[in-house]
């Protein structure tokens, strides 16, 4: 077997892809309602928000960092959207834009704390996880904003050529992210920082600037996800997006991105995301209860990483 074929076969993404196909076949046999266009598109709708945030999270984790605050940013932006629109009385499109900008600002603050003060990303974003959620709860005073105009729901509940609107947005962002991470100079820089931040610094890469950009993008995209989310459920609540960061990180890590940085692809993240969503949905349709589904997802995560590590050691040796 030639070396390149061998590399291709034993890549994490290939293993994950095979696992996904296996899971899809098995789930399709468990319930005849699983493999229908309607169900698959509907699942796409449900996974778009986690998916969007996972794209940015892939960059973050490739640099060796982590962003735990994305769920809280989502909650904060959702509340701000409502406040800007209803309490301050701004037109809704402007409120949406300002909300997303606020998300970017929240991400920028994460980046500042990490790069300027040298706080490890885990600690910095753990702190802002609490901070942003607290802000959201304080601003909202446990009141939710409702009564959005009909056109706004197109974003989260509408369809475009038969495909949910947010799936188009997600697809576009995924292609963009894949190009940036896989093909651009900035992408190479991201990998370099994750492999060895010190060496990158001494090689003349502007590490801090790149990190700032990535964390800002992470906040921005969490803001975008928030707007879609509000449109999908037609109301804002301060507890929106609680625990989102765990789903996102699971998808990214399942997709083969190394938590130590330097390794990972958008394709992998997409595969991880789809596998997770397919398991959640398929098992539910097959009659497995919610608590059982979580156990299976945990088991699959460990299994995938074990298999991947096994082959990697083979390949290295």
């Amino acid at each position: 077997m030639s070396q390149s074929l061998r590399n291709l076969l034993f890549r994490h993404e290939t293993i994950l892809g095979l696992l996904l196909i296996l899971a899809l076949i098995m789930l399709a046999f468990q319930s005849d309602r699983f493999f229908t266009t309607e169900n698959l598109l509907n699942q796409g709708r449900l996974m778009a928000e986690v998916g969007l945030v996972a794209l940015a999270m892939t960059f973050v984790i490739v640099t060796g960092g982590i962003d735990l605050s994305v769920g809280s940013i989502l909650g904060l932006v959702a509340i701000l959207l409502g406040v800007f629109w209803q309490n301050i009385g701004l037109p809704l499109p402007l409120a949406m834009m300002l909300g997303i900008a606020a998300g970017a600002l929240a991400g920028f603050v994460n980046g500042l704390i990490i790069t300027r003060f040298g706080v490890p990303p885990l600690i910095a974003t753990l702190a802002t996880l609490a901070l942003y959620r607290g802000l959201a709860e304080g601003i909202s005073q446990a009141r939710s904003v409702r009564g959005y105009p009909e056109w706004f729901f197109v974003l989260g509940q509408g369809e475009f050529f038969g495909v949910p609107v947010q799936l188009w947005i997600f697809g576009l962002c995924a292609v963009l992210a894949a190009i940036i991470l896989g093909l651009s100079t900035f992408g190479r820089e991201t990998y370099a920082i994750g492999s060895n931040a010190v060496a990158s610094r001494f090689s003349g890469l502007r590490v801090d600037r790149a990190l700032l950009l990535i964390y800002t993008a992470s906040g921005l995209i969490a803001g975008l996800a928030a707007v879609i989310f509000v449109s999908r459920v037609s109301t804002t609540r301060s507890d929106m997006g609680t625990g989102l960061e765990l789903d996102v990180i699971t998808a990214v890590v399942l997709g083969g991105t190394s938590i130590f940085g330097g390794r990972g692809t958008i394709i992998g993240t997409l595969l991880g995301l789809v596998l997770m969503q397919a398991l959640k949905n398929g098992l539910a349709l097959a009659g497995v209860k919610g608590d059982g589904t979580i156990v299976v997802i945990g088991a699959v995560l460990i299994l995938t990483i074990l298999i991947s590590n096994m082959f990697r050691r083979d390949a290295d040796g």
């Binding site: 509907n42 449900l46 989310f229 459920v233 507890d239 929106m240 989102l244 959640k280 349709l285």
Partner: peptide, 11 residues
């Protein structure tokens, strides 16, 4: 959690 509850009902 309302997000999860919606997914459950949807499924």
């Amino acid at each position: 959690n309302i997000d999860q509850q919606i997914s459950f009902i949807d499924n």
